[in-house]
Each structure stands twice: as C-alpha cells, then as structure tokens.
Design a protein around this nucleic acid. Sequence first.
DNA 1: TAGTGGTCTAGACCACCGG
DNA 2: CGGTGGTCTAGACCACTAA
Lengths: 259, 259
Amino acid sequence: MRSGSVRETSAPRYLQIAEDLAEQIQKGVLPPGEKIPSESELMDRYGVAPGTARKAVAELRATGLIETHHGKGSFVKSRPPVNRKSSDRFRRSHRKAGKAAYLAEAEQAGAKPSVRVLYVGPTEAPADIADRLSVAPGTQVLARRRLYFSDGVPTEEATSYLPWDVAKDIPELFAENPGGGGIYARLEDHGHILAEFSETVRARLATKPEAVSLSLSPGAPVIHLTRNAYSEAGRVVEVCDTLMAADQFILDYRIPAGD
Amino acid sequence: MRSGSVRETSAPRYLQIAEDLAEQIQKGVLPPGEKIPSESELMDRYGVAPGTARKAVAELRATGLIETHHGKGSFVKSRPPVNRKSSDRFRRSHRKAGKAAYLAEAEQAGAKPSVRVLYVGPTEAPADIADRLSVAPGTQVLARRRLYFSDGVPTEEATSYLPWDVAKDIPELFAENPGGGGIYARLEDHGHILAEFSETVRARLATKPEAVSLSLSPGAPVIHLTRNAYSEAGRVVEVCDTLMAADQFILDYRIPAGD
DNA sequence: TAGTGGTCTAGACCACCGG
DNA sequence: CGGTGGTCTAGACCACTAA
C-alpha cells in the first residue's frame, strides 16, 4: 500500500531517501568519516520496509558517497585529494634528480605516500605481457609487483615486467628499493637509454579480487593503465600494468600538434 | 529455509545464478542480442524467490554483460569493437589530408560511424570552461555539442568551446559540418597555428542523465576526457569535453623520454 | 491483454563486529 | 551479547511493451 503522495508517479522512495542523505552529506551535516543512520533506523525514520532502506544505502554506495563495512555500518567517504599522473613524470631530468614519480605526485596532492612490495622475482610471462615484450609466452621474466598507498589507503597496484636478459645484469632491480630515479634510472645506468613510452588507458568496473586488494566497494570503477618502455634501440625493455582506484586519479597527457 | 547444500558457507545463490548465466554467454549458448530467461523463468528454473532472481540479473547488468529494457526483457550485449583513441589523431598531416579523426578511428575498428549535431551556437561559459579558456565565467563563447554513434549506437558525447573573438571570424565553425580536417584545420586556416594539446582523463560512474543520453545502464563506467588546444601564441583557442562509454574505448598515448 | 521488469512490504536467518 | 549489514522468502501492485 502506497501512502498518498502529491505526485502519483514521483521518484522511487528509495531514491528520495538516497537523495535526502546525499544532501546532508553535501551540506556537511554528515561530515566525512561519519556513520550514516543504520538500515533499521532508516526504516523507522522514513517508514519503509527493510528492502527499501537497503536499496537507498546501495544507491549511495554505487555513487561513491559512502562505503559500508559489514557489522559496523556505512560511513561517509572522505574525498581524498586526487593524485595526478602527468606525462611529465617520465622526463629524464626528473630521473637524474633522483625523484620517484609516485612520491612527488602524492606529496604534491598533500597525501603521505607509501609503498609495499608484494613480490620481486622471476615469473613466467603471461600471454599479453609476453606479446608486449616480444618473447614467447611462458618465458622467464623479472616481475616487480607493488602496492601503493596514499595516507595509508591502498590506491594503486602496479606490476613491472622486464626481459630476463635485460634484468639479470642489474642487481638493483632485484632489490625492494631500486634506488633514486627508480628502475628507469637503473636501466639507463646500464646502457638501456630510454627513448619513448607508450601508454594505454582503459576504464571498467573492478572484479571481486581487484576490489579486495584495493579495498574498494565491489563495482567501483578502476583505471587500467598499461605502459611499454622503449629503448633507443627500439626494444621494449619494460612493461608495466597498473590498476588504480578511478576516483583517486586524474591522468594528464601532453600531445604535440606537429606533423 | 535454505535447502541443504554441500558447502554451508558457499557463494550467495544470486551470484551462482549470475555465474551460471555468464558462463552460457561466454560459451555462446546465449549469443549477443539474445534474450536471457525472464525473472519468473529464473525463479522456476533455480527455485528461488523473485528478489533473488532479480539480484542475479542486476549482477549481470552491473558487469556489463547484459542490458535490460523495461517491459521487454534482458538481452546479451554485443561486444562492439573498441574504438582506440590515439594521440596520433592530432597530427597536422592528418588534418591536411582532410581526415576526421573519429571517422578514421571508428572505421579502423570495423564500425560504421555517424554523428548528430546537438547544438552549435553561443553559450555562456560555465566556470570550469571559462577557467580553461582564460575568460570570465558567463562570457559568451561558441559551443559545439555533438553525439557520436558507432553502428548506430551512441558511444560518445563531445562539446567544444571556443572564445568568441576566435570563432566569430570563422563561418565554418557555425556550420554543422566544419569541413575536412575538422575545426582544428579551420583554426589553422585562419592563422591560429596549433602547437600542442593537453588532455586529462578521469573515470567514474555515469550519472542518471549521462546514462540516458549515452543509453547506458545506470551505474555504467564512463571516461571523462578534457582537452585544451594551445596555439603557437600560447593561447588556449579551444577546449573540448568528451564523455565516453568506458567499455567502448581504449586510449593510446605516446610519451617521449627526453628531458 | 498477457508478459516483462521496477518498486515495495514484512518478515526470517546468517555473518561480522564491537564491547 | 546486541547491533550491524548480507542474503533470502513469498507475496503485492505498478509501468512499460507487444500482440
């Protein structure tokens, strides 16, 4: 039984409730980090059934305004400063200055960056990686998998792959911290002068395991970035796959207009 | 009452059903365009309540495997060939050859492209646009809003803004079709030689109105691309906002490794 | 008019979290 | 342990579509 409303075909009740809560978040009545009313409280307050209150909360979660934790409640998301990924980050002068790109960028955004190395060592190249490195699938390559944090929150997972014959002579690449300027600086130290990078950008929804490792709500959007590093000899000396929480990043690119 | 299952804490029933259907789609048992079983049929077939069948369908919709049409049913999405957006598309030689970037790219992907002009004319610049054009908010600018189709399916909505003093002397910019090489060629015809473009890429979920205009399921991911065109004089002579269905595009960029 | 999905009710039980 | 969200049931009525 629907209660008599002014407009019979108005917006669904669950959207009205979501809208109401969204407004309170926007106005700061519910500040970031604050717990929003529980589902049973929403039932009482708006006089709706469990399923309806539930759907209102789901709507807010889908739009990224809140995150919910089983057994604890739903909380207003803090809007962290976005990290800008600039194409400038690959300039040789930056590498020479010993800057680590992710560090400088995160600090510029006013966040405390940190890294956790998940794995460094030999791996059999998956098909897509092998293709980009121009080696046979299953060939042994060096993999470096890292998880990046911004203010303690995981935001980005990156895996670099290097051909074994390139990596084997560069001991720093097997260390957790490859030293100032990162692995690109080490490659150039050992004669692999870099000429160009190519990047591809895709956006999609996170899979279940991805959502877990980046601690996202399932169904949150992610940016999937792939990068190939070309040496002056024209060889791909490194490829990198990066998965980012989409709401944390803006990617910047500069494109010359020339011929 | 849960029926006795082998594993008590197994995956939720609605995910099992979704997985089952996803497998049939993957294997081609349910080919693109095919109608999937209705919710009531799923209830019978799997012996679940309406809400559970419903949630299974919602899961498939969220992962982009199907699209649902009220009153008709849910249908397996055809995976159209992705459109690659390459940074090469802005080369002057392409403009001189009279190529329109979107046309060449879509055709290369094996799709029939088309365009609908939604609006061409004066507009008061919104705050963000005005900022990028270095004019005061509310200043009159020329807006060109287009909707792009691939095989008749809307995939991309783009709006260009040009400062009035730049646009007013170029009559082609007020026409629906600005001629070979697009508006960038016309700008260069009239002395605004282009030096560089800068692009920013964001990914997020579509809002309700955006989902409507691109005919996406609500909650589908979109790529929001902004581009500034710089003349050799260092002035921003055009800015462009583009909204793309994320599953339709891969963006390509090349980045020099130099200083 | 029959069939479809969209919204909603009013309960139930389970799993996780904190004190 | 009580409170929270996660899953599920078994119905109801509405809105849209096609025959």
